[in-house]
């Protein structure tokens, strides 16, 4: 798990990217009780995409025979990651809401394994954000568990349109 508190750079100042990471991390955990309840945490923000993690836990088990975690826990991780990617793209605290989320479960997450999800908000208009997301075993980002596409509603107040003109 990533260190979430801002780290001091060599010159003693807190670097800008670490401060941003700390703010995202706070947004993921501090303000979202259900993320905290599941152990969903910030991992990294890089090149416009955001990664969150979900550690394996017995309480997440959806099939008592196989000990595989419930699809709903993956849904929650991907919803949270997609939403965080929208916030990062918006760069300001504008309220958003999930409109829809389509998830393909490629294979079950292995019992005992931490799952990471990485989301990229690849298109944003005045009112809608489009996001794609991949969930994978934390030890190997190519070992995909699920893929998702989500759309989010953005509740801008008038005058906060950064680009102007989008629908």
């Amino acid at each position: 798990m990533a260190e979430n508190a801002p780290k001091e750079a060599n010159d003693g100042t807190v670097s800008e990217s670490d401060a941003i990471d700390a703010r995202i991390s706070e947004g993921v955990s501090a303000f979202v009780p259900h993320n905290r309840a599941l152990g969903i945490h910030f991992v990294e923000a890089k090149g416009g995409s955001v990664t969150l993690g979900l550690p394996y836990d017995d309480k997440l088990v959806g099939d008592p025979v196989t000990r595989i975690i419930h699809g709903g826990a993956i849904t929650t991780l991907m919803d949270a990651t997609c939403g965080t990617a929208v916030f990062v793209r918006l760069k300001e605290a504008i309220p958003i809401a999930t409109l829809d989320l389509r998830i393909d479960y490629l294979k079950p997450a292995e019992p005992g394994e931490t799952v990471h999800a990485r989301a990229d908000c690849f298109k944003i208009t005045r009112t809608i954000a489009f996001v794609r997301c991949e969930a994978f075993h934390a030890r190997d980002s190519k070992d995909l568990v699920a893929v998702a596409n989500g759309t989010f509603m953005i509740f801008r107040t008038s005058g906060t349109d950064p680009k102007g003109g989008a629908p």
Partner: peptide
């Protein structure tokens, strides 16, 4: 509610 809980 978290959207994920409704999904579950």
């Amino acid at each position: 509610l978290h959207g994920g809980t409704i999904g579950a």
